[in-house]
Each structure stands twice: as structure tokens, then as C-alpha cells.
Amino acid sequence: MLARIVATRLLEIRQSLRLTPQHIDTADNNPDLPWEFSAANKEKETLADMISCRYAIGDAAYHFQYEPSIKWPLDVRVALLVSMGEALALYSCTVVKEIVSHYPSNYKQSAVIPLLDLAQQQHGGWLPVSAMNAVAKVIEVAPIRVYEVATFYSMFNRSPVGKYHLLVCGTTPCMIRGSREIEDALLKHLGVKRNEVTKDGLFSVGEMECMGCCVNAPMITVADYSNGSEGYTYNYYEDVTPKRVVEIVEMLRKGEKPLHGTQNPKRTKCGPEGGNTTLHGEPKPPPCRDLDSC
């Protein structure tokens, strides 16, 4: 009887952990929704693109946008709006084009992961079906080939996440150093379950596998989607404690940017606590046979 209860409980846990690879049709995840790569990808543009696009938008448009006190005649405003729209469309296309240009023209589908990443950053940290369809159109493959990739990688979120997506590393070194307590502290503080978004839409907590920071375990990652793709950051907070992660969350809530890296004031980067214990001076050269004496 007990074994059965344990087994069913285990199954429940497993199923709650597993995000089904099927698409769930919600109001904001309808495949028929229009979706386009937007102009909000400034971070990724090359210098040439930046210049050409700035040039295309033009000074007048800049003034029009940022100095609304100037009274422009209506036809000028309409013309400006049209040219601005065109320029912006061109601009967003150039970012996508730039990504696609990294790959041979007959293997356009290689760009699927960078484009999905761009789409995810632009769309507040998650990929609706319509965004995947837009990617499929750019790389000229059937949409299912994009869905396959997006469902394979756990870094692509297919349901909404918070503006700050907190990822707790759950792999062995971090787990031994207390990642479960860290996650519990986060979930308790935010009052959500794993992969749930807080009511204000600011935070969500997920789990990730090893992010290569074992020397500073335990660690969390904060994916910041609050400023779209141009202000997107993906920062590691290492050597965290249950108390410290709550502080980080509160700082983020206030709009502050806590210093990323190790949170242990006694450590610098991945060095040992309290300064080096070895390697104090210039290391000695390796012992070498005296060749001249032979």
C-alpha cells in the first residue's frame, strides 16, 4: 500500500516536472497570431547596420519622436511615420539577415537556434507558436522542424516566464552545496511553484542543469527580459545563500542591478576564500636537467 502511494506520488512529481512537448493553445499562444521580428534587436546589430539604419530613420524622425513639442504639418508627420515604419522594418530585417548571413545560403536552417533565441528575447522570454512559425519562414523549412528544435532545448521556454527568469542550477555540485534550499527559499519568498510566474509577472523560477560554475556552487542565473532584446542580460550569481537570493530578488524588484559574479565578499571570482593559499609568488620554473654539464 505504502509502495503504491509512493509510486503514484513519484509519478505525480515526474509529471509535474515534465513540460509536455505538445503545444497548449491559449489566447497568447495561438498559431494564427501575427508575429514578426521587431526592431527591438539593437544589441545584435553590426556597426554597419547601425549606421545605415540610423541614417534611414533620419534626424527629422528622431526629432519627431522625441520632441513632440515641435508642431509638424500633418502630411509631413504621415510621411515621416511611413518612412520610419519602413526603416524600422528594414532595420529588424537586417538583424535577422545578419544572423542568417553567418551560415551558407543552402544551409539556412542552421540559423534556427540563434533566431529562436532572438525571438525569445524579443517576446519577453518565451516562444509562442507564431514566433516559431516566423522563424520557420525565415529559414525556409517546415514549421515542425523548428518545433522539434524548440522542444528539444530546455533553454527555449514555450510558456510565459517572468521578466526576471531565475534559473537554479540543480546539478550535483550545486545540489551538494545546497541548491535545493536555494530553490525552496526562492519559491517560498515569491509564493509560486516551479515554472510558475508571480502575479505581477516579474519573476519565475526554473531549474537548469550544470552551467559550468561548479567552483562557485551553488549558483543561480537571472535571465533579464525586462528591457526586451536590447537590454537582455543573462547573469550568474554565484556562491549564493538562501538569504542572499532573496536579497537579489528584492533588489531586482526595485529595479537595481545587483553585482553579478560571486556573492561571497571574501572571494574574488573563482579564487579561494580569504586570498590565495598557494601561488603567492612567481612560480618556480619546472626542474630541468643541466644540459651543459653532460
Partner: peptide
């Protein structure tokens, strides 16, 4: 679609 033990054949939509 999916990976590991969650891998399945499907049409997604």
C-alpha cells in the same frame, strides 16, 4: 518533439 524521457512523436500543433 521533446527530449529524453519526454520525447514523443507528434505534430506539436
Amino acid at each position: 518533439l521533446g527530449r529524453g524521457s519526454g520525447e514523443e512523436i507528434g505534430t506539436y500543433v
